[in-house]
Amino acid sequence: SSGGSSILDRAVIEHNLLSASKLYNNITFEELGALLEIPAAKAEKIASQMITEGRMNGFIDQIDGIVHFETR
């Protein structure tokens, strides 16, 4: 797709992000992006959206560029 990722790509990214949230206590956007094979800024945006929508527990430290995952 030309304008970003398809629905399937997005679903795969979100699935992998949720998997990462179970493996890590926290991770930088750079590391997360590398893990998900997407730019760091996109990793931040998707993580932020999932947390806001209540689909993933955690919070974002924008100063240090880190996602902190919280286990249920």
Rank of each mutant, 00 (worst) to 15 (best):
Ile63Val: 13
Asp9Asn: 07
Leu36Ser: 02
Leu23Arg: 11
Ala41Cys: 06
Ile60Ala: 02
Lys42Trp: 15
Gln62His: 14
Gln62Trp: 15
Ile27Glu: 00
Ile51Phe: 07
Ile60Phe: 03
Phe59Met: 07
Tyr24Val: 06
Arg72Ala: 12
Ile7Val: 13
Glu44Asp: 02
Leu17Lys: 00
Phe59Thr: 08
Ser48Asn: 09
His68Asp: 04
Asp64Tyr: 14
His15Met: 13
Ala43Gln: 00
Ala34Asn: 10
Ile46Pro: 00
Val12Tyr: 08
Ile66Val: 13
Gly4Thr: 11
Leu35Met: 08
Glu70Leu: 10
Thr28Ala: 05
Ser21Val: 08
Leu8Pro: 13
Glu14Ala: 04
Thr52Ile: 11
Glu31Leu: 10
Lys45Gln: 15
Ser1Asp: 14
Glu37Pro: 02
Ala20Phe: 14
Pro39Gly: 08
Ala41Trp: 14
Gly54Asn: 07
Phe29Tyr: 03
Arg72Thr: 11
Asp61Thr: 06
Leu18Trp: 07
Lys42Asp: 15
Leu35Cys: 04
Gly4Asp: 12
Ile66Ser: 11
Ser6His: 13
Ala41Val: 10
Arg55Leu: 09
Gly4Pro: 13
Val67Gln: 01
Asn16Cys: 06
Tyr24Glu: 02
Gly58Trp: 09
Arg10Ile: 15
Asn25Met: 13
Ile46Asn: 00
Asp64Asn: 15
Ile46Glu: 02
Ser5Asp: 14
Glu14Val: 06
Phe29Arg: 02
Ser19Trp: 11
Thr28Tyr: 04
Ile51Cys: 03
Leu18Thr: 05
Ile27Thr: 02
Arg55Tyr: 06
Asp64Ala: 15
His68Asn: 06
Arg55Phe: 06
Ser1Ala: 14
Glu44Cys: 07
Ile27Arg: 04
Ile13Gln: 05
Leu18Pro: 01
Asp64Glu: 15
Gly33Gln: 03
Pro39Phe: 04
Ile60Trp: 02
Asn25Pro: 10
Ser21Gln: 05
Gly3Phe: 07
Val67Lys: 02
Ile38Lys: 00
Ile13Glu: 04
Gln62Cys: 06
Asp9Gln: 06
Ala11Gln: 13
Gly33Tyr: 02
Ile7Lys: 12
Ile66Glu: 05
Leu17Met: 13
Arg72Asp: 13
Asn16Glu: 08
Gln62Met: 15
Ile63Asp: 09
Gln62Ile: 14
Gln49Leu: 08
Tyr24Asp: 01
Gly65Phe: 06
Ala40Met: 06
Ala40Lys: 08
Gly58Phe: 02
His15Phe: 12
Asp61Glu: 05
Lys22Trp: 08
Ala11Asn: 12
Gly3Lys: 05
Ala41Phe: 10
Asn57Ile: 10
Leu17Ala: 02
Asp61Arg: 05
Glu37Met: 14
Ala47Asn: 00
Gln49Glu: 15
Ala47Leu: 09
Ser48Phe: 11
His15Gly: 09
Val12Ala: 11
Gly58Glu: 02
Phe59Pro: 00
Ser2Phe: 07
Ser19Gly: 10
Ala20His: 06
His68Thr: 06
Arg10Leu: 15
Ser6Lys: 06
Leu18Ser: 04
Pro39Asp: 12
Leu18Asn: 04
Ser48His: 12
Ile13Asn: 03
Arg55Gly: 03
Leu23Met: 12
Lys45His: 13
Gly58Met: 03
Thr28Asn: 05
Ser2Met: 12
Gly65Ile: 03
His15Pro: 03
Glu37Cys: 07
Glu31Asn: 08
Met56Asp: 01
Ala34Trp: 10
Arg10Ser: 11
Ala11Pro: 06
Lys42Gly: 07
Thr28Asp: 03
Phe59Leu: 07
Glu31Arg: 08
Ile46Arg: 00
Ile27Phe: 05
Met50Thr: 01
Leu36Tyr: 04
Ala20Tyr: 15
Ala43Ile: 12
Leu8Ala: 14
Gly3Leu: 13
Ile63Ser: 09
Lys45Pro: 02
Thr52Leu: 13
Ser5Arg: 02
Arg72Cys: 12
Leu8Cys: 06
Ser21Gly: 07
Asp64Leu: 15
Ser2Tyr: 05
Ser2Asn: 14
Arg10Gly: 08
Val12Trp: 13
Ala40Tyr: 05
Ser19Ala: 15
Ile7Gly: 13
Thr71Arg: 10
Asp61Met: 05
Ser48Arg: 10
Thr52Ser: 14
Ser1Gly: 13
Val67Asn: 01
Asp9Lys: 06
Lys42Asn: 13
Gly58Pro: 00
Ile60Met: 04
Ile63Lys: 14
Asn26Glu: 12
Glu31Pro: 00
Thr28Lys: 05
Met50Val: 02
Ser48Pro: 00
Leu18Arg: 06
Ser1Trp: 07
Glu53Trp: 04
Ala41Gly: 09
Ser48Glu: 11
Leu32Pro: 00
Ile66Lys: 10
Thr28Gln: 02
Leu17Trp: 01
Glu70Asp: 12
Glu70Arg: 10
Ser1Phe: 05
Ser6Ile: 10
Glu30Phe: 08
Arg10Pro: 09
Thr52Asp: 15
Thr52Glu: 15
Ile51Tyr: 03
Asn25Cys: 09
Lys22Val: 09
Leu18His: 06
Asp9Ala: 06
Gly54Tyr: 04
Asp61Pro: 01
Glu37Gln: 14
Ile63Pro: 05
Met50His: 01
Leu8Asn: 12
Phe69Trp: 07
Ser19Arg: 14
Ala34Val: 11
Asn16Lys: 15
Gln49Asn: 09
Thr28His: 03
Asn16Gly: 10
Ser1Asn: 14
Leu32Asp: 00
Ile13Ser: 03
Leu18Cys: 06
Ile63His: 10
Tyr24Gln: 04
Asp64Phe: 14
Leu17Gln: 01
Ile51Thr: 01
Glu14Gln: 04
Ser2Val: 12
Thr52Cys: 07
Met50Pro: 00
Glu30Trp: 08
Ala47Thr: 10
Glu31Trp: 05
Val12Gly: 08
Glu70Lys: 11
Leu18Asp: 03
Ile27His: 01
Phe29Val: 06
Glu70Ser: 10
Glu31Ser: 07
Gly33Val: 04
Ser1Gln: 11
Lys45Cys: 06
Glu30Tyr: 08
Ser21Ala: 09
Leu32Tyr: 00
Gly58Asp: 01
Leu23Asp: 06
Gly54Gln: 05
Leu8Trp: 11
Ser2Cys: 07
Gly65Ala: 05
Asn16Asp: 06
Glu14Met: 07
Gln62Glu: 12
Asn16Val: 12
Ser6Val: 13
Ser5Phe: 08
Ala43Arg: 00
Ser6Asp: 12
Glu53Asn: 06
Ala20Gln: 07
Ala43Trp: 06
Phe69Gln: 01
Met56Ser: 00
Ser19Phe: 08
Arg10Cys: 06
Leu8Ile: 13
Ser5His: 11
Gly33Pro: 01
Met50Gly: 00
Leu35Arg: 04
Ala40Ser: 08
Ala47Gln: 01
Asp9Glu: 08
Val67Leu: 15
Ile7Trp: 13
Glu53Val: 05
Tyr24His: 07
Ala34Gly: 06
Tyr24Thr: 04
Met56Ile: 15
Thr52Pro: 00
Ile38Ala: 01
Gly58Gln: 02
Gly4Cys: 07
Thr28Arg: 06
Ile51Asp: 01
Gln49Thr: 08
Ala47Lys: 00
Lys42Tyr: 15
Gly3Asn: 13
Ser1Leu: 11
Ile38Thr: 02
Glu70Tyr: 14
Glu31Tyr: 06
Asn57Gln: 12
Leu23Lys: 12
Gly58Ala: 12
Asp64Val: 10
Lys42Ser: 15
Leu35Pro: 00
Ser1Ile: 12
Ile13Phe: 05
Gly58Thr: 00
Gly58Asn: 01
Ile66Gly: 04
Glu31Phe: 07
Phe29Leu: 12
Phe29Ile: 09
Ala40His: 05
Ile7Glu: 15
Ala11Ile: 09
Gly3Glu: 12
Glu31Ile: 06
Gly3Ile: 13
Phe69Leu: 03
Ile38Val: 08
Ala11Trp: 13
Asn57Lys: 13
Ile46Phe: 08
Ile66Tyr: 06
Ala20Met: 11
Asn57Asp: 09
Pro39Met: 04
Arg72Pro: 14
Glu30Leu: 09
Ile27Met: 13
